[in-house]
Amino acid sequence: MVIELHDICKSYLQGKEPIPVLHHIELTVEEGEYLAIMGPSGSGKSTLMNIIGLLDQQTSGLYRFDGQEMSKCSDNQLSSIRNQKIGFVFQNFNLLPRQSVLENVSLPLLYGGVRKKERLERAREILTKVGLEDRISFKPTQLSGGQKQRVAIARAMVSHPRLLLADEPTGALDTRSGEQVMDLFQQLNQEGVTIVMITHEKEIAQHARRIVTIRDGRLEQGGFSGTEPEQEVDAS
């Protein structure tokens, strides 16, 4: 299995008062799964996402990623894991506006220490896969929203991570572009990439094979849109 969350709690300090955000979360994501985490805003789904993505650390509880206990890792180790094993897709794309599409996509490879020639080759390859091979020298500002998100997906996938984390990937897109992004996710999942996606739109969540809902920091129920039923533990 890729992700194992056990009794995860998270609270933020506001002044001296700790504000709890996540309560005793139990969640496992198997290799090759396609999971949607649904919830209204303020439910703690982004916090959960950040913990899964190693951008944030839990206050208590156990998090194993790829079989490895994460709370013991140093900052640099976490950076390496993010770089090698996790791809991020954000609602607002987060592309660097002054750099070309090709440069944006090859950025994770730069941090992974890949040589320039190979970087550009692999970035071009993945851009071909998302259908943007004729846009490689464009600046992100010259692209439509759907194209930007496909660039972001290419960037997320360029170092062949095992896990793709998507935070409201269709939130800033029109329906048609959103569908294109979902088709791309489907294709990646079929190729074996594990996908965890956060959304508050039911239609989008339906593309995933399993849906969990989070409300007020608690995982409430497990729903399945796919074919393989999975045991979901709801802790409270």
Partner: peptide
Amino acid sequence: KKALGAKK
């Protein structure tokens, strides 16, 4: 950049 794996 940090999310993408850039170290300090």
